[in-house]
Design a protein around this nucleic acid. Structure first.
Lengths: 126, 126
DNA sequence: CAGCATCCAAGAAGATACTG
DNA sequence: CAGTATCTTCTTGGATGCTG
């Protein structure tokens, strides 16, 4: 290809103008993280994700999936059937982020007892 | 101690009622992640963090620091001086989350060129 | 300097109804 | 089933002014 690709340096999350902040926002959004973790177990349909991720609305699930698709983390495959079927899966990049994201999620889940203990102590101390 | 400690099982982020969602929210909040990463390089004063984290307001910095302190990730030490000086650092738990969080942040920064390329391709195809 | 209180705007999120 | 469109509600976040 002959197009003159721009520098494409690495991002800097500490700089307010850097586009990497957008990506971070999508990945760490309320539902983005849970979607990425859920998709680690394989391809899922829209309604499967909806059931798996307790509390998410149709609208936010669709929107967040579109964000993640736009960043190249999620692959959306639509089958021309009736009734319609759409399957979501992770791209290679998606697998990589989801590893980092899952590591964080699992750690937080495992750490919960400590947080609760800290909170109780603070509550008692007033 | 004689207090009957409750089960304190691990959290489940997929359950909407689980308190671990709160912790996740604090850690992955707009500024929470950047604060944790910034504090990995050692103790910082309030104003230092403010300068380091481009775009954060005083209010949100203070609020997010309080969240992280409440979860036991950040230690706040106030010196009784004039003018006042307050120093923030990571607790042991804070060091552990920050490792996961930093891994994610660094990966996203490094991955930015790919995201930008994907976006351009979609824009052209658009 | 650190940070709280107040007010206000912007955006996220939910409920509902509708479409291919 | 897998969404979109619309409306409404709530939360996030920023600006400002004030205090110890």
């Amino acid at each position: 290809m002959s197009d003159i690709t721009p520098p494409a340096r690495c991002g800097d999350l500490f700089a307010s103008g850097c586009p990497s902040r957008e990506v971070l926002k999508h990945v760490t959004s309320r539902w983005g993280l849970l979607i990425l973790v859920a998709l680690r177990m394989g391809t899922h349909r829209f309604s499967e994700l909806r059931r798996r991720i307790d509390g998410v609305s149709e609208k936010m699930l669709a929107q967040t999936l579109q964000w993640l698709e736009g960043d190249g983390f999620v692959l959306r495959v639509s089958y021309p059937e009736v009734p319609p079927r759409v399957e979501y899966s992770l791209t290679d990049a998606g697998i990589e982020v989801s590893e980092r994201v899952a590591a964080l999620a699992l750690w937080i889940e495992a750490d919960l007892p400590r947080v609760l203990a800290v909170r109780r102590r603070q509550h008692e101390a007033g």
